[in-house]
Simulated assay, not measured.
Amino acid sequence: MKITVIGGTGLIGSQLVATLRDAGHDVVPASLSSGVDLLTGAGLDEALHGAEAVVNVTNSPTFDEHSLDFFRTTVGHLLRAGEKAGVRHQVALSIVGVDQVPELDYYRAKALQEELLRQGPTPYSLVRATQFFEFMDAVLSWTADGDVVRLPATPLRPIASADVVRALADVATAAPLDGTVDVAGPDVLGLDEIGRITLAARGDGRRVVTDGTAGMFAVVRGDVLVGGPDARRAPTRYRDWLRTSPAVVQG
């Protein structure tokens, strides 16, 4: 099966390309470095030629209101190019609870991406994931001040990127869902608790102060980011991952 991965050199995309190739698929990684520009549409026709499925794992370069224009433009280009190329399945990576936090510009932009895909001409699947383990260090850095990190107790169910990749690979190589599947980590943890676990594992002497007004996750209401009872549960636990994964993603 020929599959094009848009954003095929990033954290998720590079793993997905490798996973699909290991399974015997013909995979085209598409990104700016390979001459594909979603904002202009340049290179899309070539990247999608002969593809049966396209998986879009790109991110907006900003997380503010400009991300709305990014997804409006890029999804439009991708859907038009996919229809022209005869693509039979459009897959996009999104975020669990993305339509429940309208206060966040980036979440509203991702919700727009989902809606554009639903209204598009091609059968589709949406894979919504919870927050990645790999980004937790960056989340802590947003509200760090000296030896204190302020974090709300927002409940999350964080997930390893490798587990997200496995879910994406399963969905991309199956029939289109014309719907959404949620994937989430095995454990619900408050963000402040995640902070304490992370700092302890890193041997970092800073302390976490629970602050319901700190950072972007402070606006989240209730447990909308943990996934519902039908969410696919990933096996990797955060504490186990910390013991074996020293790499830190800072953005």
Rank of each mutant, 00 (worst) to 15 (best):
K2M: 05
V5I: 13
T9S: 14
Q15L: 12
L16E: 11
V17T: 03
D22Q: 13
A23I: 11
H25G: 07
D26L: 11
L32Y: 14
S34F: 09
V36W: 02
D37F: 08
G50R: 04
V55W: 00
T58A: 05
T58L: 02
N59F: 05
T62S: 11
F63L: 08
D64G: 04
H66R: 15
H66P: 01
S67R: 09
V75S: 10
V75T: 15
G76K: 00
G82F: 03
E83A: 13
A85K: 05
G86W: 03
R88N: 08
H89N: 06
V91W: 04
V91G: 06
V96S: 04
V96R: 07
G97P: 06
G97Q: 04
D99I: 07
Y106H: 12
A109K: 11
A109F: 01
K110L: 13
A111L: 08
L112S: 07
L116S: 11
T122G: 07
P123F: 09
V127S: 05
Q131R: 06
Q131Y: 07
Q131M: 10
F133E: 12
E134M: 07
D137F: 00
A138K: 09
W142E: 14
W142V: 13
D145R: 11
G146R: 10
V148A: 03
P155V: 13
P158V: 13
I159F: 10
R166T: 08
A167N: 01
L168G: 04
L168A: 07
A169W: 02
D170S: 07
D170M: 02
V171T: 14
A172R: 05
A172Y: 01
A175D: 13
A175L: 12
L177C: 04
L177Y: 06
V183I: 15
V188Y: 07
V188W: 08
L189K: 09
I194V: 15
I197G: 10
A200K: 15
R202V: 02
G203K: 04
G203T: 06
R206G: 00
R206N: 09
T210P: 09
T210C: 13
T213F: 06
F217T: 09
A218H: 12
D223A: 15
L225V: 03
P229A: 08
A231R: 14
P235F: 02
T236W: 05
R239Q: 14
R243E: 11
R243C: 00
S245E: 10
A247W: 08
G251R: 10
